[in-house]
């Protein structure tokens, strides 16, 4: 899989390059500015771009803007945004159009190599990767009518993993249960929350997130 990296900290950029290379990725380009990222994404047609949300020159939202542009103009390129803080608002902004090939993770996540590599692969294949903090923040959000309380603890766990962008198989592996069981939980959750079932992995991410956010 072909990867482009935009990260202005040399330490982290090199760390990421090594990590991805060691795990079988082909790092076709790495840079430290948003403009460079857009250029490299056009010329090297990567499967996924890993973007630091704060990039020069102002370190405000250049990375986010580049990610949004990439996401809108090159839907075939997955975009994984890394940040030192995760905000519900930013996640919703990134996923506004679709959750296909979009990811938003806390930077810390890269040190859990297996999880991180899995997330990069998911986004590269057109899936999504949403940071657990976003999901838990949304889940813990105070609501007037709490239909979430109808969920069993196990269903809640499945809902969280689903919202992070994992496939049924991914959820089954994570919870060490059968695929069949996951499917049962999923349809039960969708029934209880009144969501339309049968969506693809990333569609259901958006549906769940929007449900949790409302």
């Amino acid at each position: 899989m072909r990867v482009v990296i935009a990260e202005d900290s040399v330490l982290l950029r090199e760390g990421l390059e090594r990590l991805l290379t060691e795990n079988g990725f082909d790092v076709v380009g790495s840079c430290e500015t948003a403009d460079d990222l857009l250029l490299k994404a056009r010329s090297y047609s990567p499967d996924v771009a890993i973007v630091d949300i704060r990039l020069p020159p102002t370190h405000n939202d250049e990375g986010m803007q580049a990610a949004l542009e990439l996401h809108a103009r090159h839907p075939s390129v997955g975009v994984l945004v890394l940040s030192q803080y995760v905000e519900v608002g930013l996640a919703m902004k990134l996923l506004a159009e679709s959750a296909d090939g979009a990811g938003y993770l806390l930077k810390d996540r890269i040190s859990d190599v297996k999880e991180f590599v899995g997330a990069v692969e998911r986004v590269a294949r057109g899936g999504s990767a949403i940071d657990p903090i976003i999901v838990s923040t949304l889940l813990s959000r105070q609501r007037r009518d709490d239909s979430l309380s109808d969920l069993t603890p196990r269903e809640r766990e499945v809902l969280e993993l689903m919202a992070e962008g994992r496939s049924n198989q991914g959820i089954a592996d994570k919870l060490v249960i059968s695929l069949r069981a996951v499917e049962k939980y999923v349809s039960s959750i969708f029934g209880k929350l009144g969501l339309p079932s049968g969506a693809t992995d990333s569609r259901r991410v958006l549906a769940v997130l929007l449900y949790l956010r409302s």
Partner: peptide, 9 residues
């Protein structure tokens, strides 16, 4: 973060 990544490797 970089340190954590190194430890992980």
């Amino acid at each position: 973060i970089a340190l954590s990544l190194e430890l992980s490797r």
